[in-house]
Design a protein around this nucleic acid. Sequence first.
DNA 1: ACAATTCGGTTGTTTTTACAACAGAAAGGA
DNA 2: TCCTTTCTGTTGTAAAAACAACCGAATTGT
Lengths: 219, 219
Amino acid sequence: MKKYIPILRRTKLFAGVGEGEISAMLGCLQAKQDSYKKGEYVFRQGEYLNNITVLVEGSLHIQRDDYWGNRSIINVIGIGEMFGEAYAAPDSGALLNDVVAVEDSTVIFFDVKRILTVCSSACKFHSIVVQNLFFAMSEKNRKLVQKLGHMSKRSTREKLISYLSEEAKRQNSGTITIPFNRQQLADFLSVDRSAMSNELCKMRDEGLLMFEKNKFTLL
Amino acid sequence: MKKYIPILRRTKLFAGVGEGEISAMLGCLQAKQDSYKKGEYVFRQGEYLNNITVLVEGSLHIQRDDYWGNRSIINVIGIGEMFGEAYAAPDSGALLNDVVAVEDSTVIFFDVKRILTVCSSACKFHSIVVQNLFFAMSEKNRKLVQKLGHMSKRSTREKLISYLSEEAKRQNSGTITIPFNRQQLADFLSVDRSAMSNELCKMRDEGLLMFEKNKFTLL
DNA sequence: ACAATTCGGTTGTTTTTACAACAGAAAGGA
DNA sequence: TCCTTTCTGTTGTAAAAACAACCGAATTGT
């Protein structure tokens, strides 16, 4: 697990905490590590969690397949991001989504009780982590609201514009790379893939944007 | 502000804290109170917040109007619920939504820094509140994901079923009262009001449900 | 009680989407 | 390299939603 300490150091959860302290906290927080091959499930819908999990290698999708097989991608988890935190509280009930590795991935689990209960021992930085946890959850929250913003748009075109322009803002560039192929983007925006593909090409023909694979340029 | 202490006591934020302690914390957390008439704005899009706010009287909508006047209702805040917490962190940026009173309302503001920074003085219950804050944010998070679940449905009918059946589950009854009129429900689910009204009547004629005003019975 | 406004339902038209089926290109594996 | 699979774009059709316009009922304010 030692090898991932430099990565943990750069996460929101451990912002402001040194590598030495993180190393010490790994024990205090009962950290456990696990790896998953592309396509494997980290968590499944219906499971009960009691840990906060941080991705240190690879990439994950938080998604949900409904009864008819329609997939909805809720969120993408990149390296350094945490997940599962919303289901780690005592009365939060079962997980409503699947968490699946979209490439070979490694995660580290932290016991949530141990994070929230400030220990009396050496971990001075514990309270920083609690604050960080709050900030990270705030951010996740805002991200979800932004996604609601995209999905509240009535047409596929508007959804695309809403998503791509926000992504351009976030990546601070007119040319962006998205973490989706076409099917995944459609599942993320909850639209039909072929209709979306069609709309994208129309937008390209109208000179609104250019794209090649998952690289888009807004004009 | 004293008169609202019994209400605060029943909130998620102050769960497990006695009235005496709450009373003491009001000062410690620099609580401030304000009231709004129906239709008035508590916060506006673009504002910067640094407090967590709890509704103690009335009802609020978290909503957003886009460029063309399409309204999207993100969330409903009932008595005892908190809001604004996702925008109270230092780097969270400006508020993306409006918060508007849908009836005469009263709120109490708490300075977020003071909540997160455990004071050395008498407030023993401070750390409980920090935990509560985490749990409350978790819950809000799950609520947003549930809303994404409704909005990810492709048809108006599916959106309605998704929303109403979740609400029936939450209210633990086949007969539920929703906090929306037709226009608001449409804005909440991001569909056209007349089309939705039409669909509701079709569903009623098919024997799927019954309704009268904002009271629905699922069959 | 009356006038004005809001609310909910209805209908017809236009636009958009979902769905299905297919084909060429690209990627991946043996 | 060849074969297989995945990915993306294209087209046509059927279904659904948005939009607009309207009406009667209910509600609100004076």
